[in-house]
């Protein structure tokens, strides 16, 4: 007789094990609560500071200037991003060209503008090019190189063109080869292939980096205040030098944060709308 594989006796039911209890105050929770408290305190402190140092006459004086500066910033960004978008097309194509000289030239352009600070570029264009006064006067271009605004616009457009060319190139290279082949097998001419098939798909990929580039330009445009342009930052710096009041910078910070956040949200909505055919 083999041994029965059956339990000889019932095993008494045991109570279920104790629940694994988590400590009420883990380190992470403590740290999180403290940091939330810090932000609440900072927010209240900011509001209290802005209320206690509220001065109607100063607000009347500076609020229109801030708004004016904000419009200048927006105008600068909108113009330079659009001009840069146009300029970026030939540069991106040059970068992908089969001609070695064209390829190296556009590579050099992109490398220069992406490898040096915007501030140094602005100084080079404004002070450096401005020093060849007679040369520009001979060309009848002195009015352009004398003006801080046009120089800022020029250097910003050239700068963002380099970045946008890289975005565009990456996006175009991202389009699968089959799309080119399919278009070729349908007998579409190169222009139609590019504008109707390649570019629409590339722009969807490029949407996010373009949005980031616009935000970077909004933030980067603050440096024009150094070459005497009164954008939002320029008016802020002037207000600070006149009043020596720290809240001038805080108002500017709130302004910039709002603009960037709104821009980011709008771009998210736009992307959501434009990629609706890709979602399931």
């Amino acid at each position: 007789m083999s041994e029965a594989y059956v339990a000889q006796e019932m095993i008494a039911a045991r109570p279920r094990p104790n629940e694994v209890r988590k400590a009420d105050w883990t380190f992470a929770r403590l740290l999180g609560s403290l940091s939330i408290l810090f932000w609440i305190a900072a927010g209240i402190g900011l509001i209290v500071f802005l209320i206690t140092s509220y001065d109607q006459s100063q607000i009347d004086k500076y609020a229109p200037r801030y708004f004016d500066g904000f419009l200048t910033t927006m105008k600068l960004v909108a113009l330079s991003v659009s001009i840069g978008a146009v300029l970026s097309l030939p540069i991106a194509f040059g970068r992908m060209s089969s001609n070695k000289i064209v390829r190296n030239l556009s590579f050099g352009y992109i490398y220069f503008f992406r490898g040096t600070p915007l501030l140094a570029q602005l100084f080079l264009f404004y002070y450096g090019f401005g020093s060849f006064r007679h040369f520009w006067q001979d060309l009848n271009l002195w009015w352009f190189f004398r003006d801080a605004w046009s120089i800022a616009l020029l250097s910003f457009s050239l700068n963002t063109a380099a970045y946008q060319a890289e975005i565009l190139r990456g996006a175009i290279m991202n389009v699968p080869k089959g799309q080119h082949e399919g278009a070729a097998s349908l007998g579409l001419p190169p222009m139609v292939t590019f504008f109707k098939i390649i570019l629409p798909q590339a722009l969807i990929v490029a949407l996010r980096p373009y949005g980031n580039e616009i935000i970077l330009m909004i933030k980067g445009s603050a440096v024009v205040s150094i070459v005497t342009i009164f954008d939002l930052m320029g008016h802020t710096r002037r207000a600070f030098s006149q009043t020596l009041d720290y809240q001038t910078y805080l108002y500017a910070a709130i302004f910039y944060l709002l603009v960037v956040e709104i821009m980011r949200r709008l771009w998210d909505l736009l992307e959501h709308r434009l990629t609706r055919h890709l979602r399931r």
Binding site: R29, L31, F38, W39, R237, L250, L257, E261
Partner: peptide, 27 residues
């Protein structure tokens, strides 16, 4: 997993990614 920690870290990154570097520097 602590939502308080998440929120405060996100506040930090939102602020410093939204402000121009020049303004951050002055502040």
């Amino acid at each position: 997993r602590e939502s308080s920690l998440q929120i405060s870290a996100k506040i930090f990154t939102t602020i410093f990614r939204g402000l121009p570097e020049l303004l951050t520097l002055f502040i």
